[in-house]
Design a protein around this nucleic acid. Structure first.
Lengths: 202, 202
DNA sequence: GGTTTATATGAACGGATGTTCATCTCAAAG
DNA sequence: CTTTGAGATGAACATCCGTTCATATAAACC
């Protein structure tokens, strides 16, 4: 049997995973059948159950892996010193990371309601952990006087919503390069948190 | 027969509409059966077809009505004079309007991929029309010198994503009132577009 | 009271759903 | 060359899907 047993890493095999990710993102979890996923991989529906216990686990695995990779990548990222540098690092990291994984991002935002309550809780706690990373930066900058935000929690949610929104319109080969987009968004975020140190008079 | 014929107002009857809206928002279009909607209204599945031609029209009608009401409400809103006043009006209007209709908003954002291509185009053009309202304000403020945005199109999308994000976390009876939320977001938007006229020194 | 007409039923249609399982294939191990 | 045993099949399970339609109900009109 091929089904992974003990470890709690990725339960689902990689070929099935990526086929499911592609289809869930394009058509939605509920609209994709196990037979359709199997056809994408090039096998029959029954064979999928050698690689995943069930459809729900397939979805949960995709979300969990995505969010764990997100947290891990941010933990490993160059952040610089001071709240201002860290906020810029976060903004650029968030856009870069999310633009590189449009399918995973789409699923993680759109398919939450198709998770069982227990799985939903686990995913939500991973998402909160990520939000806390940004909020910590905002609170630190608030205390140091670098930022002036009326409410760090709301600013956190507002910034993340704004940044993740890039995924809904960005297209490769479009008018703006990724790094140009990063810079434009960083400009808006920096000003929004009251961190526009220079170049202002009245 | 009850099915509306000539006019292109709302094809679907109101009781069926609101039951479908509730269920689509909670469980997703693909996961809700006509039988489930019928049960919510208190009838059998077959009777639904007296009120709507099919399931797809039900979804399309919900989205179209929502976006038309959005455009109409903004057209009728008090806007004030000058780019700054109009941007504030837009921010407050957007949050207020969207918080009042969480189900319709959720559906309009999450179920786009379940529209037929023709219906998708019609919905997208309504959404673009709304975005254009904000972009016009930003361009006007840019020309008048009230704002300094690096890219009005990106600023439009960024602001709308940020404002709509309120719907994902706001809960009635929470820490902040609606008007307090409006003010906090307006503060961030105003600063983001470089329109923080007063209260800044360095 | 009788007739029209809107409203609703519930069975039926062909087909799709997630999942299971006995069976088969076929490369590697002994 | 035989024996494994993992990988894959494809039929089968019970159930659900969107939609249609002949039929029933019941209120509105003459």
């Amino acid at each position: 049997m091929a089904r992974k047993t003990g470890s709690h890493a990725q339960i689902t095999g990689p070929r099935v995973r990526s086929a499911a990710q592609k289809l869930f993102a394009r058509m939605g979890y509920a609209a994709v059948s196990m037979r359709r996923i199997a056809a994408e991989v090039g096998m029959q529906a029954g064979a999928l159950y050698l690689y995943t216990p069930d459809k729900q686990t397939l979805l949960f695995d995709l979300m969990k892996t995505h969010l764990e990779e997100l947290l891990q990548a941010w933990a490993a990222a160059e952040k610089g010193k001071g709240a201002m540098a860290q906020l810029e690092a976060f903004v650029r990291f968030h856009i870069r990371f999310h633009l590189a994984r449009p399918d995973a991002v789409f699923i993680a935002y759109m398919e939450l309601r198709n998770l069982t309550p227990e799985n939903f809780e686990r995913i939500e706690s991973l998402r909160r952990a990520y939000e806390n990373q940004l909020e910590a930066i905002l609170r630190q900058g608030q205390e140091s006087g670098d930022f002036r935000v009326p409410d760090t929690k709301l600013a956190t949610l507002a910034i993340i919503a704004m940044l993740t929104g890039v995924n809904t319109w960005y297209r490769e080969g479009g008018r703006l390069s990724r790094s140009r987009v990063e810079s434009i968004y960083w400009d808006m975020v920096r000003k929004a948190v009251g961190g526009d140190d220079a170049a202002r008079i009245a």
